[in-house]
Amino acid sequence: MLLLTCPHCGVTAEETEFAPGGEAHLKRFGPGSDDDAFEAYMFNRKNPMGVHFERWRHAYGCGKWFIAARCTVTLEVFGTYPAQTTEPPAGIVETIKAKRPEWEGYK
């Protein structure tokens, strides 16, 4: 079971209080983009064994979206941060690098 801390209200709760929202930091390709870019945006998702960034919503709590950096193998959560950002904050990246030196980095 995942224990997540909502960065908006500070509550730490188990995952049933939250709703998952899929991969984080997607760049949207909409009207005017080429078919390959749109297809990739629409369908192609990372499925890593290890470090992953996911969107979550504190559905039964404050209702806000946030992003969780976690390990898909051990369920360790490296950190959570508000969703209003296009890439992981430096502090989170540092934490992950310290714990997973083999991690290739975000992207």
Binding site: V11, A13, T16, E17, Y60, C62
Partner: peptide, 17 residues
């Protein structure tokens, strides 16, 4: 509720399920 009630102090509101 998935809440640790031992941690819920007076004057705190907890939204949960």
């Amino acid at each position: 509720c998935p809440v640790d009630f031992a941690q819920l102090g007076a004057g705190e509101i907890r939204r949960t399920r």
